[in-house]
Design a protein around this nucleic acid. Structure first.
Length: 492
RNA sequence: GGUCUGAUGGCCGAGUGGCUAGGCACAGCUCUGCAAAAGCUGCUACAGCGGUUCAAGUCCGCUUCAGACCUCCA
């Protein structure tokens, strides 16, 4: 029996709600993954990291989570939903590749980068192209219920009929009048009865690269159909949480709810959680806007927007230092600030990890009241307030460093508590794992020798030699820290 | 044009009707052979104008500005 302590902001109600799973301790979490036609950028990582944190938090609380994150490899059109070309197919045509080659390539890239950034693998990563049958069934079901219509070989969701008995706009707060008076220019001859109608199934044009047989002829599924079909298949007609970027609220998630209500009478997910955007100079960072920076560029520093390369964990920390529902403005200055702060935090953590603490003490620390750990957990349970949790860690950093300098003394019990809090919060929950010191014992032996040599030089007031050792090591990324009694070293 | 969100100190960013979040930067001090690292101290902001209240960045109204969605988007 898991005690429900997590508050989540539900877009459906526009407020924080206590999260209560449908069938505790089981939790179904569905998150909209990428459309695999381009390299993952900073925006993708925010969504992945946000829901990775939720996944980790839920597991930490003791829930059994099935985390489904889809891969959109078909059905997502460029430009207008009626006139556009399939994104994958376009890329394939331009590069003369098989569409599935494009999809596979970028799927691999996506998974690689997300894993680099500390995102745990989802339980299931279903692909739209692997669920054509389910999507056809969904379209057929809605058609049979009279809430969709066939038009020129395509099946469209009938928004006006649906709206007679349902609330189209529950999630996004949109109403039909607005949608009707959108007044955009229409260059194509619409097959749709109503502007807001959306495709459940699209007839394939001649020469369309990706197409499958259906009761209505050759075609391919509409974008919104995949998430409804796949979330239902793996999590059920009603499940706990559906996540994604804020920009998916309308039309994507609104349409998902409509599809679900029209077919089985549920909203699908009960909690809809959305992460906000990353901005660059105050503007949304997006592929179509041409101002997105790919993760590869971050890691290599190869974008003209960047003054240096940043490690995956620095970027993860940068993202977690802001609340997931706030826009986060990207700048080199902000990223460098994060980098420095994160480094300090990691150093403090490694001081704790370098301390011999018996398993018994650690176990005891886990069992008892731990102020730091509970403060952090309280913050994270409050709609995933990672910045506040991080602030608590920084607070305790001063104590840890003072202890390291011998200015304050800490009991073994207290050290065990701090260790548990850092391990759990920084490591397990925030996922900011950093590899243990490189080099291992050999480096340790060499450093010990160099420190001893430098100590002798200092004793004979041979400042030149002492400084040479210090400065050369610093150039190599090894920083000597002088103490009252001898010296210590760390990786810069 | 419609709908919605937001405006916090040099920068990034939390937050609550009443006790200076935190980080980065900066300055001073301590430690030190000099540094670095670390610690301590300082930097008290909440777009503007009204209103409610004993008390408002925090609630209400108006204004200005910015962004998101309304077309694909994490």
């Amino acid at each position: 029996m898991v005690e429900n302590k997590i508050q989540l902001h539900n877009t459906l109600s526009r407020r924080k709600e206590l999260f209560i799973p449908l069938k505790s301790p089981f939790v179904g979490l569905y998150v909209c993954g990428p459309t695999v036609y381009g390299d993952p950028h900073l925006g993708h990582s925010r969504s992945a990291i946000t829901f990775d944190l939720l996944f980790r938090l839920l597991k930490y609380e003791g829930y059994k989570v099935r985390y489904v994150r889809n891969i959109t490899d078909v059905g997502h059109l460029v430009g207008d939903a009626d006139g556009g070309e399939d994104k994958i197919a376009k890329k394939a045509r331009l590069e003369q590749l098989e569409p599935m080659e494009v999809a596979q390539y970028y799927t691999n890239r996506y998974e690689h980068y997300m894993s680099e950034m500390g995102c745990l693998s989802p339980s299931i990563e279903p692909r739209a192209s692997g669920h054509i049958i389910e999507q056809i069934a969904l379209a057929k079901d809605i058609l049979d219920r009279g809430l969709a219509y066939l038009s020129n070989g395509s099946v469209y969701f009938d928004v006006l009929s649906y709206a007679k008995s349902h609330d189209y706009g529950v999630l996004s707060g949109r109403n039909l009048d607005e949608l009707q008076s959108g007044g955009r220019s229409e260059d194509y001859v619409s097959e749709k009865r109503f502007e807001a109608d959306f495709a459940l199934w699209k007839k394939a044009d001649q020469g369309h690269i990706m197409q499958w047989p259906s009761p209505w002829g050759m075609g391919f599924p509409g974008w919104h159909a995949e998430c409804t079909a796949m979330s239902r298949k793996y999590l059920g007609e009603q499940f706990d949480i559906h996540g994604g970027g804020l920009d998916l609220v309308f039309p994507h998630h609104e349409c998902e709810i409509a599809q679900s209500m029209a077919s089985v009478g549920t909203t699908g997910a009960r909690y809809w959680v959305h992460n906000n955007m990353i901005t660059l100079n105050g503007q949304k960072m997006g592929k179509s806007l041409g101002n997105s920076i790919s993760l590869d560029e971050f890691f290599t520093g190869s974008s003209k927007q960047l003054t240096q390369a940043y490690s995956p964990m620095t970027i993860r920390f940068f993202i977690l230092q802001a609340h997931y529902r706030s826009t986060l403005d990207f700048s080199n200055e902000a990223l460098q600030a994060s980098q420095r702060g994160f480094l300090r935090l990691v150093k403090g953590w490694s001081l704790l990890r370098g301390q011999e603490i018996s398993p018994e003490l650690l176990a005891a620390a886990r069992g008892e009241e731990n102020d730091l750990l509970s403060s952090c957990l309280e913050a994270l349970r409050d709609d995933m307030n990672s910045p506040v949790a991080i602030a608590y860690l920084f607070d305790s950093l001063a104590v840890i460093n003072s202890w390291d300098n011998g200015k304050v003394s800490l009991s073994k019990e207290r050290l065990a508590q701090l260790r548990v809090a850092f391990d759990d919060v920084l490591g397990e929950l925030l996922g900011l794992e950093v590899e243990a010191s490189v080099g291992g014992d050999k480096l340790g032996v060499a450093m010990e020798l160099l420190l001893a040599m430098r100590q002798r030089a200092k004793e004979s007031k041979d400042w030149k030699s002492a400084d040479e050792i210090r400065d050369r090591l610093l150039e190599a990324g090894l920083r000597i820290k002088d103490r009252k009694d001898g010296a210590d070293w760390e990786l810069e």
